[in-house]
Amino acid sequence: MTPAIYRIDSRVEEFPGTCTVRISPESAGGARRCSAGQFNMLYAFGAGEVPISMSGLQGDGSYVHTIRIQGLVTRALHRLNEGDSLGVRGPFGCGWPMDKVAGRQLLVVAGGLGMAPLRPIVQALMAGSARPASVQLFYGARRPQEMLYAAEVEQWSRALKVVTTVDHADTGWPGQIGVITKPLGAASVDIENALVFLCGPEVMMRFCIQVLLAKGVATEAIYLSMERNMKCAIGHCGHCQWGPNFVCKDGPVFCYRDIRPWFDIRAL
């Protein structure tokens, strides 16, 4: 499976070391269906491929991806400018269960870069689709300067209930200072009707799940996105195995009920 060539239409530096790009195919081709929570394999010439989640659903054949420098390949991708090209394979994996959202009390819980795969969800909600009964967004980050989509989050907070919390900030920062588990624990949750989409560092998700379960949220109402090493994205290379799951094709979004036995096994 060879990558299709895409070109960078626009590039925004979110904060140093992290950028969001919109890319479209170099040669015209049918737009491939993709959904929030899925990912593409992005190829930087000669450097290699990395899995990067969808950070926006354009519906016009272009993709939006947020890239943070983590290693060699992401460094090469981050270095690309508008007009430069890259390779794209995808989309792969299972996304967020949008069909379950209607009528539910939706809690979107994002930590750090975990906001990236959840952004299309919030954008869809802002556009009036999916029709949940209510929406609360909890977004935790390290510092206000390291929050993704800052201007957009500001817009969202005018239409939705948005709680932002950072580990460190000056008191001029209008959000909370502390950790995300605190506002999540304090949130009013209708346990019968709640639906949670959770994405962030694994340890952050673990603590959030503890809080949610303590509140009485059902395991089947919690969905989360997992990260493991991926090379092929199609269940052949074996790298992303996590218990019986291939994170690339069975995930990356899993229902917590289904993966609960594996979630707490260390070094799995």
Binding site: G112, R142, G178, T181, K182
Partner: peptide, 17 residues
């Protein structure tokens, strides 16, 4: 204990690269 737990989580610096 809740504050201590939150403080420890904060110390973990989970969002750092």
């Amino acid at each position: 204990t809740e504050r201590l737990q939150a403080t420890r989580l904060q110390l973990l610096d989970v969002y750092s690269s």
